[in-house]
Design a binder for these strands. Structure first.
Lengths: 221, 221
DNA sequence: CGCGATGTTGACGCCTTTTCGAGTTCGTCT
DNA sequence: AGACGAACTCGAAAAGGCGTCAACATCGCG
C-alpha cells in the first residue's frame, strides 16, 4: 500500500510545463523533490535523530553543496515534509466541507478523512524500519501550513456557529479541542496496529466531539 | 572542586546514615540537578536544537566528561527534564482523585490542576527568551513517566466506568481524548499570554469532555 | 593510613555541518 | 549563432560539536 517510489528525480519527458517552464526551474523543482523523497526514506528508515544530511544526499544525484542551496538543515527538510503533508490534507478537508449538507455529517466525514490520511502517511513513513529501537520523542511541527489547517477547521466551526449549527462558543478553543481529540484518538488507533479498526475509532472521536459541542454553553455576546 | 567544605560531617557513624548520606551520593545528586537546571535554562534561552552539550555544562562547575557520566546526550537530558515534569504531576493528579467525591468534580479539579501546572512549567522554561526566532517544531516526549500519567488517567476512567459514572466505553480512547482536549486547549490558553483566563479555559475543557463522555454510549443518544 | 573504587578533568580524534571559490549550465541579448 | 552574465553545482576544506580516555583527584572503608 505504500506509495510506490516513482522515479520522480529524472523527468524522462520534459513536456511543456506551466508558464515559464525553463529547464532551470524544472531541475530546481526536481532537485527539491529528490531531496524530499530521499529524506522521507531516510527518516523513515533510521529515524530523524540518527539521520544526517549526508545520508540524505547520498540517495540523491546531488552534492552536499547543492543541498544547502535548497535547505539550511535537516530540520528544515523535516519541516518541509510536514508542510507538504498539511498542504495535501487541507484540500481534502475543504472538499468534505463543500460536499457536506449538515454539520454533523461533515464532522464525521472530516474525521474519517483525517484518520485515513494519517494511516496512509504513517505507512508511507514506516517503510522498512529494521531496528526496533524507537525514540520516545515525537516531533510536532507547527509551521504556517499546519496553522493553515487549523485555521480551516476554525473557519468551518465559526461558519457552523454562524448558521446556528453549534452554540456560540470560542471557535479557537473548539477547533483546538476537536483537533486534540482527533489527534490523540488517531495516535491510539495507529498504536493498535496491525488491528486497526477505523470505524470504531472514527465513531468514538465523532461522538466525543459532537457530544462535547452540544454541552457547550453559548458564550455571552 | 567548588563544592569546597562541608562542616566536617565526620564519618564517625558510617552505618546509621540515612539514604544518600554519603558524600559521594550527595554530589552525584547535586551534579545531576545542576545539569538539569542548567539544561532547562539553556533550552529555554536558545531552544533545544541550537543548544549543545557544552552550552549546558558551561553553566555548571562540571566538565564535559562528567556530563557523559550522567547523560548520554542532550536528548537524554531533555527526556529527563520531561520525565521530571511528569513525575511531579502524577501525585497532584492522584491527590485530586483521592480528594474527589464524584467524577464530575474530579474532572474539573484535574483539569484545573493540569492547567495550573502547565502555566507554571511554561513560565519556568521561558525565563529570558531574547531572540524572537522561534523554531516551529515542538518536541513531545512519550517516555515511561508520561505513560505512567496516561495510565493514571486511564485507571481513573476505568474506575469511573466500573462505578457506573461513565458509560462502558473504550477507556484507552477516552483517556486519550480527554488528554487531547486538555492539552490542546491548554496550549491555546498559553498562547493567549499575557491575557490568560484560566477559568474560561478550564470551563471550556471541562464541559467539552463531560459532554463528550455523556454522548458516548454505543447506541448514540 | 593506605588502597581500591569511583568520579572528574580536558585535550584529542572523529565525524558532521557549513562555507566558498572555481567550474559549469542556462537564458538572453545582439 | 555566439557570447556574456546570472544562476547553479561541486567538493575540498574550514569550523565546530561530540564522545572518549588516560591521568589525576576524591571518597569509603578496613
Amino acid at each position: 500500500m505504500p506509495v510506490a517510489d516513482d522515479a520522480s528525480a529524472i523527468a524522462a519527458a520534459p513536456e511543456a510545463l506551466g508558464p515559464g517552464a525553463g529547464k532551470r526551474e524544472e531541475t530546481k523543482r526536481a532537485n527539491r523533490r529528490a531531496i524530499l523523497d530521499a529524506a522521507r526514506q531516510v527518516f523513515g528508515e533510521m529515524g530523524f535523530e540518527a539521520a544526517s544530511v549526508r545520508d540524505i544526499i547520498r540517495r540523491t544525484p546531488l552534492s552536499v553543496g547543492a543541498f544547502y542551496n535548497y535547505y539550511r538543515s535537516k530540520e528544515e527538510v523535516y519541516e518541509a515534509l510536514a508542510a507538504d503533508g498539511a498542504r495535501r490534507f487541507k484540500p481534502i478537508l475543504r472538499a468534505e466541507y463543500d460536499k457536506a449538507t449538515d454539520f454533523d455529517s461533515f464532522l464525521r466525514a472530516a474525521i474519517t478523512a483525517f484518520f485515513r490520511f494519517s494511516i496512509a502517511e504513517h505507512e508511507a513513513w514506516q517503510m522498512m524500519r529494521p531496528t526496533g529501537e524507537r525514540s520516545h520523542a515525537h516531533i510536532r511541527v507547527e509551521g504556517p501550513e499546519q496553522k493553515a489547517v487549523f485555521e480551516e477547521v476554525r473557519a468551518v466551526i465559526a461558519d457552523g456557529i454562524e448558521r446556528g449549527l453549534a452554540p456560540r462558543v470560542d471557535a479557537d478553543y473548539l477547533a483546538a479541542a476537536a483537533i486534540g481529540v482527533a489527534r490523540e484518538v488517531c495516535d491510539r488507533m495507529l498504536a493498535r496496529r496491525p488491528d486497526i479498526d477505523l470505524e470504531a475509532a472514527v465513531d468514538f472521536a465523532h461522538r466525543m466531539i459532537q457530544g462535547g459541542v452540544e454541552a457547550l454553553p453559548a458564550v455571552g455576546e
